[in-house]
Amino acid sequence: MSKDRLLSVERLVKIYGDKPAVRGISFSVDEGEIFALIGPNGAGKTTTMRIIATLLKPTSGRVLVDGHDVVSEPLEVRRRISYLPEEAGAYPNMTGREYLEFVAQVYFEDPGEARAAVERGIEYAALGDAIDERVKTYSKGMKRRLQLARALMTRPRLLLLDEPTSGVDVVHAVHLRRVVKRVAREEGSTVLLSSHNMLEVEYLSDRVAFIHEGRILVEGTPGEVKKRYGAGNLEEAFVRALEEQGLSLGGSG
């Protein structure tokens, strides 16, 4: 593999009070790769995403994004990432276009670059005339499309997508997946994705990792993982991975 490593997670631990959420996980993602974390609620996916997005501090371990440490160089990391939380809203009294403009102005000093980013965002969101309406008039699906467009338009080195199609209907989910795949391929963005949706993961990801109760159970390409567990799909492989470890699916939210 000649590609550079863009994300490196080493022995990452996160404990909230006395409750461990992440228990020493390690994985890495190469430049241009789409990597998915698969696991039930409470598995530690969102905590891992938030640590990479510099929002949470790890209890121990190290995370590097493009060579920058998330704890000691958070601003450098934020310049290189774009994070789409599972529950992300936009400002209700702004129009969709104004929201994209606001984010673009934060990322880009050059007005021309900011304008170009907004144009890309408008294209990705595909909201038509609604882009000039206030966000408070948007449906949940429209808000999610706007958020995904916001995350993609800045051409980040690393795109962090937490349940990107959560709450979106089938038609729009297909649209969003296509956009993510196209942008990742065309722009060469690296993507770290978390999802419950195994079809989505299989469609988008180059490599996957099963995560359960803060630990990574297995890691590899979707084909390798399915082959290892003799499963027809990732869902079946996940269940068998749990059984192999003597674990149950009783993760808490």
Partner: peptide, 18 residues
């Protein structure tokens, strides 16, 4: 309160700003 209610704070704090 609006940031919390509309769930915009997490995104805002992940942008390249202090």
């Amino acid at each position: 309160g609006v940031e919390k209610e509309e769930k915009t704070l997490e995104t805002l704090l992940s942008l390249p700003i202090r």
